[in-house]
Design a protein around this nucleic acid. Structure first.
Length: 273
DNA sequence: AGTGCGACCCGAACGC
DNA sequence: TGCGTTCGGGTCGCAC
């Protein structure tokens, strides 16, 4: 659920609280969450590393430390809490960082799907996820020609291909539906059958919808009580996603929901022929 | 190489 | 009301 706009929103919030803080140590309560290195190396290596910078790459949050990059992937429901040692541990808090100002950064995930990595700086470009990620939506190299080359071998529906992080990175299920609506493209169209205009529309609308969503602080589809959760407002701007049986904001037709590649997919049958 | 699908999780929504 | 079942979401790994 967190896609690029939500990830950026979270990263910006973390930045205001974590820059120049030092990580004194870490506790791990769910080992599978640490993707790299081993849990024991993770705990050992992160000691006394200072946080200098927080950015994003694809849907990853990337923190620059002294000798490593600390990466987080929120998957569907990963979130961060700021607490102190005295605060009781919530059952969904799986990785807890002790900071040098006596606060704690706690990474929580109800579904336990979130991932954490601590990668040596000189290895960052030689291992996943960086080797697998495509262009950022705002990258100048993201052109119709680039997509033409990538899409040429894809007989999959464009909806599925927009979710392929190795082509454009950062788009998830919500914004994929919105981008296709704005581009007036049927989600089942094979990627290789798209026209030059289709590809240009996809690029333009990807940038527009993500920029707008970032302005609104992201999309909140389910409501969470936590004060640190992403509580964006972009859900009020959605044209099709999660609007099954409602009226198209453009033509008044009924929005329908289908499955594409196993994913819930919403579209307007009249606007997206 | 491209494609399809189960696995990973578990709370919420649904069906009876 | 209470129970059991299904669903969803991003990504990986495996089989074809």
């Amino acid at each position: 659920m967190p896609e690029k706009p939500e990830v950026i929103t979270v990263a910006r919030k973390l930045e205001t609280k974590l820059i120049n803080k030092k990580i004194l140590g870490v506790e791990v309560f769910y080992n599978n969450m640490i993707d790299y290195p081993t849990v024991s190396d993770f705990k050992k290596n992160i000691k006394n590393q200072k946080i200098y910078n927080i950015t994003t790459r694809g849907k990853w949050i990337v923190m620059t430390l002294d000798d490593y990059y600390l990466l987080f992937h929120l998957r569907m429901e990963g979130k961060f809490f700021f607490r102190t040692k005295e605060d009781e541990k919530n059952k969904h808090e799986h990785v807890i960082f002790d900071l040098d100002d006596d606060t704690q950064l706690r990474f929580a995930d109800v579904r336990k799907f979130g991932k954490v990595m601590l990668i040596e700086k000189d290895k960052i470009n030689n291992m996943k996820p960086y080797t697998e990620l495509g262009l950022e939506p705002w990258d100048k190299n993201l052109t119709s020609e680039y997509l033409k080359e990538k899409y040429s071998k894809k007989s999959l529906p464009i909806k599925s291909v927009l979710l392929d992080q190795s082509i454009i990175t950062g788009i998830g299920n919500i914004y994929a539906d919105e981008i296709l609506f704005l581009s007036r493209i049927n989600p089942l169209t094979k990627a290789k059958d798209l026209t030059d205009k289709n590809r240009k529309d996809i690029i333009k609308n990807t940038i527009e919808v993500l920029d707008k969503a970032i302005e609104e602080g992201g999309t909140t589809i389910r409501s969470y009580t936590s004060e640190e959760g992403v509580t964006g407002m972009f859900q009020n701007n959605l044209f099709v996603h999660q609007r099954e049986k409602e009226s198209c904001r453009i033509c008044n037709s009924t929005i329908i929901k289908i499955k594409v590649g196993g994913r819930g997919t919403y579209y307007c049958p009249k606007c997206q022929k």
